[in-house]
Design a protein around this nucleic acid. Structure first.
Length: 766
DNA sequence: TTAGGGTTAG
């Protein structure tokens, strides 16, 4: 069967060329019994080769038996001559035979075809010779001189080999001498390849362009796309846009790029936030019914998945189904993963059950693998459905080729940690060991993280050390977890301790470790240590990101270290990082606090120039600045301006700033009316709002209002705090009022108040 | 397919 195929392929290659400016196509009569012909041909070939090998070369010319063989073989088929030549096994024998045959050409039935086929075999040998250059040139000359047409195979070989030898002009010459009718897709593919490989991009695209024309006689095929797109990608020859246009032209000829290439291109588009372009390409290829497979679709699906665009994912899967592109295990993995990450676990389970059972035309089903199970188990754990996760684990164990692994158990452990069930999580570690699965660094980090969140640092450290003894070392994530836990309780000393430990353990810190430390140090306002960490970060070859710059600028503003503030700003600029609204807000607030309104204005101006609109924080900072210098008119003006000229609505903080300012001036009426306005505009007052109002009241004259506000707080479920207590204790002294105050406080179990016992002592005594 | 994260106004 394979021989049959090779014969019929050869037949296609009988498009021959000669150099006397005309070309002919040799057509072979189709033999109704090809296998018989094949047998007789084989017999002829073997006999001829044996005789040639028996006869010394210098006797060939005079050998009568050879002469007789030429005549008899010639009536079999011209094909035998290419086979005989090939079986002689060497270039020197092949060229000698060709010369012999040429000398005997008058006895050949079909001279041109026979000689051209023999020559093709000689050319094949020449290409593998140590120094093929001269031999190939000579053979090409012989073909021209003797008017022997070249087969397509020979043409392609010559074009390719000349190209590889850096003789691209010679390649072009061979191609250009072809009659235009004979410049078929196969030959053009070789030429395009040679031209591209030799950097003659424009020439290559000229040839390609002819192929891509609408009514092209020699349209592009799969191989054309392979050659062109591979080179285009490797050499970055075209812009993304031009590649897209090129794919579309291939598509209109029913040709799609190969799956691997297309997948890479789709992924690259997705990475550059061009999922829409990727979508259009695949739609176009589907519309033109080009052959397609799942992987490029998977690339787009995973991109849509990252953006949680489930509705477009659905559309794409439906379109795939319509044109019968079979989803594969990866497709299923992406779909259930996305659904799980969006907490739509039931839908994920549904898709899983549906797809894995779905039998396609060729009887294949998507076989569930451990990744699918792990994804679903993780999804169930993340939404707290731990029982179902355990049940799925049991089912997984029953499935073929789906043994649970460390990931499976880590997902479960994470589930229990999130639920605060640290003991159960530790039991799962034991279970995994029983299953002969070793806990890994993720296991450790999951439990360390869980313990830090639910039981504090010490327990986590003990666990970590135990695991280290078992041979599981921590990594940068482990130390990050510990450092973060330290920072979150403002224990920066301990954070630095773990940073040192990490270095001792040979873990190289990533930028995020430094950011966490900087953040911790900024929180506790330790500017000198923060500077030290920044230095270490830079020594490590990292740079600060905008967030870190903002934190540091905030810290230096707070410390009144103008010099450092400017240093940070200069550094930012050097690093090519543009300030964002948070940077500006920090600076505006800083200048505001220094009553430097000129700089405030300048910053706001610059902010706008940078295309940043003032945010509610910007207004807050400026309004606060005006309030702090007693310029309440200016503050109110800006406040009103906010409502009129910006899309930013005042929030609780802004109202509080104003209410506080009016309250300090004793202007209770204005303060109260602002609070009423809050209600109207659905801005929720908080404890600070009421505290500000309380401060302005005095028991004797406004006791009733005060009590009314207290009731309002209760109605709004607004919890009082320590300050509320202190103010109210000062304002209320009558026994009736104190009873009311006691009742007022009883509704709340204000945790912060129980620690400071003094306010309650009054009640317990009372 | 599993683990870690940090900024501005009062």
């Amino acid at each position: 069967m394979s021989i049959m195929l090779s014969i019929s392929r050869r037949r296609n290659s009988y498009i021959l060329l000669n150099h006397s400016r005309f070309l002919r196509r040799f057509s072979y009569d189709v033999d109704p019994r090809p296998e018989i012909k094949l047998e007789s041909q084989e017999f002829v070939v073997v006999k001829f080769v044996k005789t040639l090998q028996k006869t010394p070369q210098h006797d060939w010319a005079s050998s009568e038996s050879l002469s007789a063989l030429v005549v008899s073989s010639s009536s079999a088929s011209p094909l035998v001559f290419s086979q005989i030549t090939r079986r002689l096994g060497s270039y020197s024998l092949a060229i000698s035979f060709f010369e012999y045959l040429d000398a005997k050409s008058q006895s050949l039935k079909r001279r041109e075809e026979s000689l051209s086929l023999a020559l093709q075999s000689v050319i094949e040998f020449a290409g593998s010779e140590p120094d093929p250059r001269d031999k190939l040139l000579r053979l090409y000359e012989i073909a021209k001189e003797k008017n022997i047409p070249l087969t397509v195979v020979a043409t392609n070989l010559l074009i390719r080999w000349f190209g590889r030898m850096g003789m691209v002009n010679q390649s072009v010459l061979v191609y250009e001498r072809l009659d235009s009718n004979m410049k078929n897709s196969q030959v053009r593919n070789v030429v395009v390849d040679v031209l591209l490989r030799n950097g003659l991009v424009d020439d290559a695209f000229k040839v390609l362009d002819e192929m891509l024309q609408k009514e092209s006689v020699f349209p592009p095929n799969r191989i054309t796309a392979d050659i062109v797109l591979h080179e285009v990608w490797k050499g970055r020859l075209l812009t993304e846009e031009k590649i897209i246009a090129l794919i579309s032209r291939f598509s209109s000829h029913g040709v799609s790029p190969n799956s691997v290439w297309l997948t890479r291109f789709i992924s690259s588009l997705c990475k550059n936030a061009r999922a829409n372009a990727a979508w259009d390409i695949l739609s176009d290829l589907m519309k033109n019914k080009t052959p397609l497979e799942a992987p490029p679709f998977n690339a787009l699906l995973s991109c849509l998945g990252r953006n949680m665009d489930i509705s477009r994912m659905n559309d794409l899967v439906l379109k795939m189904d319509e044109v019968k592109i079979r989803p594969d295990v990866v497709t299923l993995g992406i779909l259930i993963n996305t659904l799980c990450k969006s907490r739509r676990v039931d839908e994920a389970l549904e898709v899983f059950e549906q797809m894995r059972g779905k039998r396609t035309d060729d009887g294949n089903v998507i076989k569930a693998d451990s990744i699918h199970f792990n994804t679903l188990i993780d999804g169930l754990c993340k939404v707290g459905r731990l029982k179902e996760a355990e049940e799925l684990l049991v089912r997984m164990k029953l499935e073929e080729r789906c043994a649970p692994n460390a990931v499976t158990y880590n997902c479960l452990i994470d589930g229990y940690c999130r639920a605060g069930k640290l003991e159960t999580a530790k039991e799962v570690v034991s279970r995994m060991k029983e299953d002969e699965i070793k806990p890994n660094v993720v296991t450790v980090n999951t439990i360390v993280g869980g313990m830090c969140r639910h039981h504090g640092l010490n327990m986590a450290v003990v666990f970590f050390m135990d695991m280290e003894k078992e041979g599981v070392k921590g990594n940068v994530v482990t130390y990050m977890t510990l450092i973060h836990a330290c920072c979150s309780v403002s224990n920066v000393e301990k954070a630095m301790y773990w940073y040192e430990k990490m270095l001792e353990a040979g873990c190289s810190p990533d930028a995020k470790i430094y950011y966490a430390l900087i953040s911790g140090l900024c929180q506790v306002r330790r500017d000198h240590d923060a500077i030290r960490v920044v230095e270490k970060l830079k020594e490590g070859g990292f740079s600060l990101d905008l967030l870190a710059y903002n934190m540091l600028i905030g810290l230096f503003c707070d410390k009144n270290n103008t010099e450092k503030v400017y240093e940070m700003l200069t550094d930012m600029e050097k690093e090519g990082k543009k300030p964002d609204s948070i940077t500006y807000n920090t600076l505006i607030s800083f200048f505001g606090k220094h009553k430097d309104f000129e700089s405030v204005e300048r910053m706001m101006e610059q902010m706008r120039e940078d295309g940043l609109d003032p945010t509610v924080t910007t207004y807050g900072a400026v309004i606060d600045a005006y309030c702090s210098v007693g310029e309440l008119d200016e503050a109110l003006k800006l406040f009103k301006d906010m409502g009129l000229h910006s899309k930013v609505n005042p929030n609780t903080v802004i109202y509080n700033i104003l209410i506080n300012a009016f309250s300090k001036l004793g202007n209770f009426g204005q303060a109260l009316s602002l609070k009423e306005e809050m209600k109207m505009k659905m801005v929720r007052p908080n404890v600070e709002t009421y505290n500000a109002l309380f401060k302005c009241l005095n028991e004797k004259t406004q006791g009733e209002t005060l009590l009314k506000l207290m009731d309002e707080m209760v109605e709004q479920s607004c919890e009082p705090n320590q300050i509320t207590m202190e103010i109210l204790m000062e304002r209320l002294s009558g026994s009736d009022e104190l009873v009311k105050l006691r009742k007022f406080m009883q509704g709340y179990s204000v945790a912060s108040l129980t620690e400071k016992a003094s306010p309650f002592d009054v009640f317990s005594l009372g």
